[in-house]
């Protein structure tokens, strides 16, 4: 397993290395689960990514949800794919070897319809080579059971995390749903269960109606909203999680460009995940990485780590309005705000 001192796979110029507990990453950019696959390796060099994250796997085979599974919405999209999976054995034998064509650490996303299914997956994957960490998807809005319901219960999230941590030798990441009253509470439960890091957030439950047929556009009636439309919500939730726990946070939700990623780092994310933007432009993650490197170089930072959690709330702005203070609070008032100066 790589560490912060391990040789880097790609020279970005500035020091972009970050760590999730014992897992060192070349840079803080990885895909969001479900928005990535080894198929992308034919379009760009996957060794340039901080990590790779698999689509969520279940213990057994699942067919997923009926069509339509996708709908475009203003600034985003709804999906209700429902996590088709060929099951853990097919994953280990056929899919995971595909990922091992690259040196980039592979994070395996686990799903379950019950607390025990996550534990069974952890048992099955224990000692399987080529897995750098596990991400527990306790937040999918598109399942017939489990998923979001489990993810809204602090007790169940803690039980899932603790059981997987007990059964695993690699870092365990808990991926949270935004569809809760208090994400801080779920984050604390994850930390109490022994999670190495927290990913925030999964998609927001949404809906769209076809006015010709008056039927829901999505076959499963509702779906998860993702894309730039949700970024302000995701950013606020990452900030709330950051204040609630002391373990690293992985920010996710609407990140398309370096300036989006930098906002998440400023509010306290150590790593960011890029999801929907990879659909828009398959090489979006490379633009995010290059833009982060440019920012670190242009602002004269020692490393990207110097930016993480540096949100300034001391300019008289209320703590409840962090976004309003972000542009002016990066510590470089003479420079243009990052949202305008950092290009992808």
């Amino acid at each position: 397993m790589s560490t912060q001192n391990a040789p880097r796979r790609h020279d970005y110029g500035p020091d972009l290395r970050v760590a999730l507990g014992p897992l060192g990453l070349d840079n803080p950019v990885m895909p969001a689960s479900g928005c990535f696959g080894p198929e992308l390796g034919s379009l760009f060099d996957l060794n340039r990514l901080g990590a790779m994250v698999t689509k969520t796997i279940f213990f057994g085979a699942r067919s997923g949800n009926p069509a339509h599974r996708l709908a475009e919405t203003p600034g985003g999209m709804l999906n209700s794919v429902g996590i088709p999976s060929r099951g853990v054995d097919a994953f280990v034998e056929q899919i995971l070897p595909e990922y091992r064509r690259w040196q980039t650490p592979t994070i395996v996303s686990l799903g379950g319809l019950s607390v025990e299914e996550y534990w069974d997956l952890a048992d099955r994957l224990r000692g399987v080579p080529g897995i750098a960490a596990l991400e527990l998807n306790v937040s999918c809005p598109n399942l017939e059971a489990g998923g979001i319901e489990m993810g809204a219960s602090p007790a169940q999230v803690e039980a899932v995390v603790r059981g997987v941590v007990d059964r695993s030798t690699v870092p365990v990441i808990s991926k949270l749903t935004p569809n809760v009253t208090s994400i801080a509470e779920i984050a604390r439960a994850s930390e109490a269960g022994g999670a190495t890091a927290i990913t925030a957030v999964n998609t927001l439950v949404g809906m769209a109606v076809d006015l010709d047929t008056r039927a829901p556009v999505i076959g499963n009636m509702v779906g998860g909203l993702s894309g730039p439309a949700i970024k302000p919500i995701a950013l606020r939730m990452v900030w709330e999680v950051r204040k609630a726990v002391s373990i690293p946070v992985i920010g996710c939700g609407g990140i398309a460009r370096a300036c989006d990623a930098l906002e998440f780092l400023v509010v306290g994310a150590t790593v960011v995940q890029v999801g929907t933007a990879t659909f828009t432009r398959p090489d979006a993650m490379l633009g995010v990485i290059d833009g982060i490197a440019d920012y670190v170089r242009d602002r004269g930072l020692e490393s990207i780590r110097d930016l993480i959690g540096t949100l300034r709330t001391d300019r008289g702005a209320a703590e409840t309005a962090p976004e309003l203070t972000l542009a002016a609070s990066t510590g470089h008032p003479a420079q243009p705000a990052p949202s305008r100066s950092v290009q992808r």
Binding site: C35, F36, E39, S42, A67, R69, N79, P84, T278
Partner: peptide
């Protein structure tokens, strides 16, 4: 969404199949 097969957005499937 992806055109490559990793997003599984364009399955032809009906509900209740054993696999995708």
């Amino acid at each position: 969404a992806c055109g490559l097969g990793y997003c599984h957005g364009c399955s032809t499937g009906e509900k209740g199949l054993a696999s995708e």
